[in-house]
Every structure is written in structure tokens, then in C-alpha cells.
Design a protein around this nucleic acid. Structure first.
Lengths: 189, 189
DNA sequence: AATATACTGTACCAATTGGTACAATTAAAC
DNA sequence: GTTTAATTGTACCAATTGGTACAGTATATT
């Protein structure tokens, strides 16, 4: 790994948090330099295309985290019920039990959305498909599996929004519990 | 009604759409003057405290729309099942069957959220309480009513986010149908 | 018709925006 | 230890940001 890319990777998480908290339009280079400790010189060395490239790299980073920790387990776990358990655990961890915002969600509602449309789209699509697959391998019919998957992904998003605006993370953890129960019962019918 | 206030009311819907599409940070006065056709002179005449006041007025406007068309029917409809029907119809109309973003949701994820915290909070709280009340009057136990209400409100939010990022309003209409069915069955148990 | 008030266009402001240029410094490779 | 490439700080840029000042023009009210 070249020095270049190594250094670049170090600041991606920091960039992620900044965008998460302020949205794309709401994040200024001034804040980025302040919070990363890097001057514009370094920033534009690592991300020659500027702010937009930073956001793209962050989105890719989020996507690959979910790919590895959520989608893949759902798709490949031998015991699909276990895969779903892993998903809920990973989601709870990732969002700090409701204290962390979903970057993808924030960008989806931002004026930014058109610029990053395909990345945002594929994040939710992948999640949906992976969960649908796991549900089907649990014996659910195609239609019902799709239905529940869409329901779960949407509810998680919504719960994050509500938790934030009510400043109450429990809204999120309650939602996760509810969804787990719903899946349980629909499988055991 | 003074001329002042009358004029002010005319542009509030336009302001709403602009904030909806761009978020708070993403909306510039330049765009506001362009899309409303009003110069800064007029704008600051109607909203002396500037952009922030415009957003506040818009949030109040949204809140009162929901108060009248969603919360009140839920709270006061003699047949509570009918009240819930009214809610779903109103929500579907308001969000143009999934083509329109939720301003409250957008602001909740924006860096703006702290400035408008109490308004955002009370919007979701009111909705939750009104729906809980209607469910209880349909014979559900307090705990279950609260549970379902939170679920419904969160799911609607999430479905709006998904519909937007997938550029597919049907995600939203599907979610509404699903939620209606869920309420139906939980009432008839 | 005169007066008061509501409204609006224009010019202006300091501060901040994202971005560039580049010389100076640091660190790795030979 | 010299060469080569990676990294960074500083100074700078034009454009845009939200906001102000105010004179001028409508529109009521009397």
C-alpha cells in the first residue's frame, strides 16, 4: 500500500463523521481542515477533486462496511436465522444504538442526493436484496420476503430519523427489537 | 388580516418547497429570491430575522397542517377506525404518494436540527400521541397502542427516505398499504 | 388630496465559500 | 548521502454567502 493511500484511509472515518453531522452542503472545508487537522494542501493532495471526492470516498467506505458486516452475512450464513441476528447486531453497533445518524439517509434528503444518486440507491437496494435472500432461505415465499425486507430497511431508517429528532436513542433500539420479533413470528408460522 | 401578514402567507408554501428540496444549509437567499420572485427588500420586510425566521414559519405551517388534517381527526373522530383512515389518506396526499420529501425529516438530519429541535420534536411527538389515542379507542392496550404508533410513524419516515433515494415513489405507497393492513389485523384480534 | 404605512429594488457590506499555485519540508529508496 | 517522491503550510483567488441601508414607489386610510 502506497504511503498515499495509507494516509488517505486514516482520515476517512473523520470525514464520515463530519458529513454525517452536517450534511454535504452544511460541511465547509474550514471545518474539515479544523477537525482533521489537515491543511488544504494535504486535503487536496489526497482528494484532488475536492469536497465531492471526499464525500464519494466516504460513501464507498460506508458501503463496503455494510457489504462486509451486514450484506455478506445475510447472503452467505449457513444458518439464515443466524445471518439475520448478525445483521441486527451489526446495525445496532454501527448506529451506536441510535445515537449515530445514517449518512446515507442524510444525503438522501440533502440537495446532494442527485450527485450521489447511484451510490445511495445501491446501498438500500443491496440491503433489501440481501435480507430478502436470507428470509427466503428461512422458508418465506418470495413476495412475503420482499415485503418484510423493505419494511425492515425502511423502519430502521425511520427510527434513526425519529431517534435523532426526539433526541432519544431508545426509539431506535425499540424499533430494532420490534422488527426482530416481527421476523421471528413470520418465520415460525 | 393586515396586508403584511396576508402577503407573507402567500409565499410560505414556496419557501416550504425550497427548504424541502435543499435543506436549510443548502438553501441560499439567492435561490429564495429567484424562486419566490421577491427581492431581498421584500423578503427582509416580511421576515426581518432572515433565513432562520423563514424556516421557522415554514415549520409552523407544516405543523399546523398536520395538526388540522392528521392529528385532530385522529384525536376527535367519533369512529376511531375512520380517523386512522383519514390519517393515511392525508399522509398519502401530503407526500404526493411518495414524490415529496418530509421537510421535518430533512431538517432532523441536517446540521440545522439543533436550531429547530423543539419544533421537530413536537411534530413527531404529537403524531405519536394522536395515533396512540386513536388506537386505544379502538380497543388496544396502552402498551400495544404506543408500540404500533411509534412503528407507523417511523415507518412512514423511513419509507419516504427510501422512496427518495431509490427514486421510486411506490416504495412509499407500498409501505402505507402494509401499515394499514398491520393496524387492521391488530385491531381485529 | 394628503398623509401614513406597506412594499420593493438597488447598491452595498464583511465574511466565508470551494478551490488553486507553489515553494518548502519531510521521508523513503538507492 | 543523494535523489526522488510524498506531504504540507501559506498566500491567494473569484464567487457567493447572509444580511443591511435606504430611497423610491405603491396602496390604503382619512
Amino acid at each position: 500500500m502506497s504511503r498515499d493511500i495509507a494516509q488517505r484511509h486514516i482520515i476517512i472515518p473523520a470525514l464520515g463523521e463530519i458529513f454525517r453531522e452536517n450534511g454535504f452542503a452544511g460541511t465547509s472545508l474550514a471545518e474539515i481542515t479544523y477537525r482533521t487537522g489537515l491543511g488544504k494542501g494535504s486535503l487536496y493532495h489526497f482528494f484532488p477533486k475536492g469536497k465531492k471526492e471526499m464525500a464519494e470516498v466516504v460513501l464507498d467506505d460506508v458501503a463496503s462496511w455494510f457489504e462486509e458486516n451486514v450484506f455478506l452475512p445475510l447472503l452467505e450464513c449457513k444458518n439464515p436465522k443466524h445471518g439475520i441476528q448478525i445483521m441486527f447486531k451489526a446495525v445496532d453497533d454501527y448506529f451506536y444504538s441510535g445515537e449515530r445518524i445514517c449518512l446515507i439517509g442524510a444525503f438522501s434528503l440533502d440537495d446532494t442526493r442527485d450527485q450521489f444518486a447511484s451510490k445511495l440507491n445501491s446501498y438500500f437496494t443491496s440491503w433489501n436484496e440481501a435480507l430478502t435472500s436470507a428470509l427466503k432461505r428461512n422458508g418465506l415465499a418470495n413476495k412475503q420476503a420482499k415485503d418484510i425486507a423493505e419494511d425492515v430497511v425502511a423502519s430502521i431508517q425511520g427510527a434513526l430519523v425519529l431517534a435523532r429528532s426526539q433526541d432519544n436513542p431508545k426509539v431506535f433500539t425499540r424499533a430494532l427489537k420490534r422488527l426482530q420479533r416481527r421476523i421471528e413470528t413470520s418465520i415460525h408460522e
